[in-house]
């Protein structure tokens, strides 16, 4: 469990990125932070040195912990993958276990197993990151974050740089992993659809790290707290709203989305 207690963060320049933020992230659940750019999501995710307030992990105040050792207990997936370009895939995945003193042979063997976990072929193990596609690189990023078997997984817009099809695939895959592994996950995105696809708990932000609403996707969709939230999810809701369309001389019913694009067919008798 991660608890933010009255967290504020002011940067040296004077920007108050987060102001008196409090939230509990339940264990083994995915909490998704969603909000427009600059609303303080990344700042919260990196919560290691707040200006004021406390961050507790399983009841322990992290300000007393060594930041280097703390980071090794947390899996972190970055937007730009952050894979080390001079290390082979297998060595990238083995990075944190190696830092923790796991013997090289063991760490590399475990890394191969993690390739299976994230749905990558083992034949990619000896490649360098720039020899993989964007989607494959992100999977390696996830595998690397999982390598030390951390309780906590932090993901900062991890799928922001891949195309929509691969992105949807990665979201499905992440949901599967989350069910299997039950990490306490903090996921940042500015895409409300992605938030709803992944989250057990959604946190919608205004600027300044201020919470607009917290709830399950269903709760937020059913009862937006205010106009801000309604607009935030509404702009996309139209797109998500599916409706049925009957076509002349055709027994099938077409399902179309908010933009009028066909999404599927109902009751086609062939």
């Amino acid at each position: 469990m991660i608890e933010f207690q009255n967290i504020s963060k002011r940067f040296p320049g004077g920007t108050l990125a987060v102001d008196d933020f409090s939230l509990v992230l339940p264990s083994h659940k995915a909490t998704v932070f969603v909000g427009s750019s600059g609303s303080g999501k990344t700042t919260l995710l990196r919560m290691i040195d707040p200006t004021a307030g406390r961050v507790l992990i399983d009841g322990e105040d992290i300000s007393g912990l060594n930041p280097v050792l703390l980071r090794r207990r947390i899996g972190y997936v970055l937007q730009a993958t952050g894979l080390l370009p001079h290390r082979r895939v297998v060595d990238n995945i083995a990075t944190v276990p190696r830092l923790n003193g796991v013997p090289k042979r063991v760490a590399r063997r475990d890394a191969l197993t993690l390739l299976d976990t994230v749905g990558l072929d083992r034949s990619l193990a000896e490649r360098y990151p720039d020899q993989l596609s964007g989607g494959q690189q992100q999977r390696v990023g996830v595998a690397r974050a999982l390598a030390s078997d951390p309780d906590i997984l932090l993901m900062d817009e991890p799928f922001g740089a891949v195309d929509p099809i691969v992105r949807a695939e990665l979201q499905v895959e992440l949901n599967r992993l989350q069910r299997e592994l039950g990490k306490t996950t903090m996921f940042v995105t500015h895409d409300i659809d992605e938030a709803f696809a992944i989250a057990d708990q959604v946190v919608i932000f205004r600027t300044g790290g201020v919470i607009a609403q917290v709830g399950t996707p269903a709760e937020i969709l059913a009862n937006p707290a205010d106009d801000f939230v309604a607009t935030f999810i509404g702009a996309d809701r139209g797109k998500r709203t599916l409706h049925l369309q009957h076509r002349e001389g055709d027994s099938a019913t077409l399902i179309v989305d908010g933009d009028g694009r066909p999404a599927g067919i109902l009751g086609a008798d062939r």
Partner: peptide
Amino acid sequence: DAIEAATAMGY
């Protein structure tokens, strides 16, 4: 981003 990633991983 390589430096940032390395820091985040606990180097």
